[in-house]
Each structure stands twice: as structure tokens, then as C-alpha cells.
């Protein structure tokens, strides 16, 4: 039985309704601004983010320092602006690496089955049983701390998760008769997988990957906070939170709160965009 009119109408209404979705567009706009800030950071920052000024330690927000300063008298606004770069590039690189690895493994597992599939199932079982952070700390313990290692470690941790998700949507995609239709037309297996099945999967994957970007940002910030990721004098947001902590007991919340809010805002916005994107693509599929 084909879809009945009511369902179609609801779906159509849903699509146009989401076009007017203010939350989605606010989030997109906010993320757009954040990206622009990252690109033009050096021109936007009023001070050198690493310039120490002992005369202005823990100063309150003022005309000179709109967000105040930290324990070394560095301008928080400038640090926040410059920190955008490292805070966004990290999760982006991590996601690119994890996606290339994960999507390839997931598709091969779905297409080919057999031992690759079994191996993937085992690896993901272990990864799920094993706290991700512990695995990452282990990798860092072996290869030494630093922003680059943190990105690589998290990429390795995310790859099986992406692989598993890719495998599940690839399996449902391969079950669609258009794949058989291409085979009947005489198109080869590898071509069907790469040229037709993967592009048809991207809408479903895209939303998921956007959400994962938020998770990656959180993960990297957490690692920096713990001292495993970005190292001083970087103004990566997780590191800023950690460095600002000393001020809390003295009543100076700004240095922790400012980067903390920045992380939370970006993660929430990314999640909203990711989830809506997945829904919107789903309505078309």
C-alpha cells in the first residue's frame, strides 16, 4: 500500500514547518558567527591573548576588558576569540579522520559481511564495554600528551562508533531494490557502493556526524581540562576552564564561566542543527 494522503500532507507540512523553525536557524546563525570569529580571530581580538599584565589580574568586566581578565591578567575576550580556532579545528580534524576510517570500515562490513563484519562487531563491543576516555588516556600515555595526540586518540575511539552506525544504515540501504536494479543494469559492485549507495547514505550520516562534532568538541575540551590535550599558553577552551579554576575559590568566576559557556553554547547549537538535519533529510528519503 502506498502512503496515504494524510501522511504525505503531514510530511509536507513538516518540511515547510521546519523551514520556519527559528531554533534551527538561530543555531545555524550562531555557528556561522562562531566560524567567522575563528577565521578572523587575529583581527577581532583587541589584545594579544598571551600578553601577561600583572597590573590587571582578575579584573572585572570593564570597557578596557569587556569580559575581564584571568589570573595572569590576560584579556579573556581575546583568549576566547583566539581559542575558537583550536577549539573548532581539533574536533573537525578528529571527525574527518574518524569518518574516513569509520565509513570505509562500515561499508566494507555491510557489503562484504564475513570476517570484517565479525571483527568490527568485536572491536565495537570492546569499545562500548571500555570507557572511551580510558582508551584515550591509554593512547596518550603511550604517545605522550598534546593536542595532536588527543585528536588522534579520540579519532581512533570514534571510528568504530561511526563504523557501526554506517554499517547499519548501509545494510538498510543495500536492502533497497534500487541496488538490485543497478545490478540488473550491469553496474559492478564497487561502483554501486561508492557512486550510488554512499551518496544515498550521506543525508542520514550527515546529521549524525554533526552531532558527533559536538561530542568531539566536548571530548577534546575534557582532555585539555585534564591536562592531556592542548598545553599552555594555548587558549583552547577546555584548558581555559582548567586554568581559570584557581579563581573560583577567590570569587572570580569569569575565567571559568566564559569558556565554559562558550563550549556549552556551541555544543547545544551543534546538537540542534545535527538532530534537525537528520530529521529533515529523513523526511525526504
Amino acid at each position: 500500500m502506498t502512503t496515504n494522503t494524510a501522511d504525505v500532507l503531514i510530511a509536507r507540512k513538516g518540511i515547510s514547518g521546519r523551514r520556519r523553525d527559528p531554533l534551527f536557524w538561530t543555531s545555524v546563525g550562531f555557528l556561522g558567527v562562531v566560524v567567522l570569529v575563528a577565521i578572523f580571530a587575529p583581527f577581532l581580538a583587541p589584545y594579544d591573548p598571551e600578553a601577561i599584565d600583572f597590573a590587571a589580574i582578575w579584573s572585572q568586566p570593564s570597557a578596557a576588558h569587556p569580559l575581564g581578565t584571568d589570573q595572569l591578567g590576560r584579556d579573556l575576550l581575546s583568549r576566547l576569540i583566539l581559542g575558537t580556532r583550536e577549539s573548532l579545528i581539533g574536533p573537525f580534524l578528529l571527525l574527518v579522520g574518524a569518518t574516513i576510517l569509520g565509513v570505509t570500515i562500515g561499508i566494507v562490513a555491510a557489503w562484504n559481511g564475513r570476517w570484517i563484519d565479525v571483527l568490527l562487531a568485536r572491536i565495537t563491543d570492546v569499545m562500548f564495554a571500555f570507557p572511551g576516555l580510558l582508551f584515550v588516556v591509554l593512547v596518550i600515555a603511550v604517545f605522550g600528551e598534546g593536542a595532536a595526540t588527543a585528536v588522534v586518540a579520540l579519532a581512533l575511539a570514534y571510528a568504530p562508533v561511526i563504523a557501526k552506525f554506517t554499517r547499519s544504515i548501509a545494510l538498510s540501504e543495500l536492502a533497497r531494490p534500487y541496488v538490485d536494479a543497478y545490478r540488473v543494469q550491469g553496474v559492478g559492485g564497487a561502483t554501486i557502493a561508492t557512486r550510488y549507495v554512499v551518496p544515498n547514505m550521506t543525508p542520514a550520516l550527515l546529521g549524525y556526524l554533526v552531532v558527533l562534532f559536538g561530542e568531539g568538541l566536548m571530548g577534546l575540551a575534557t582532555l585539555s581540562y585534564l591536562g592531556f590535550g592542548a598545553q599552555p599558553p594555548s587558549s583552547e577552551w577546555g584548558l581555559m576552564v582548567q586554568e581559570g579554576q584557581d579563581g573560583i575559590v577567590l570569587g572570580h568566576f569569569g575565567p571559568t564561566l566564559v569558556p565554559g559557556i562558550a563550549i556549552a553554547a556551541v555544543v547545544v547549537a551543534v546538537n540542534i542543527v545535527g538532530v534537525r538535519l537528520a530529521e529533515r533529510m529523513g523526511a525526504r528519503a
Binding site: 496515504n4 494524510a6 504525505v8
Partner: peptide, 8 residues
């Protein structure tokens, strides 16, 4: 037929 409103 489909869409005639039976299920609705």
C-alpha cells in the same frame, strides 16, 4: 484507493 481516507 490509496489516499481515499479509509485508514484516516
Amino acid at each position: 484507493e490509496s489516499g481515499s481516507g479509509k485508514s484516516s
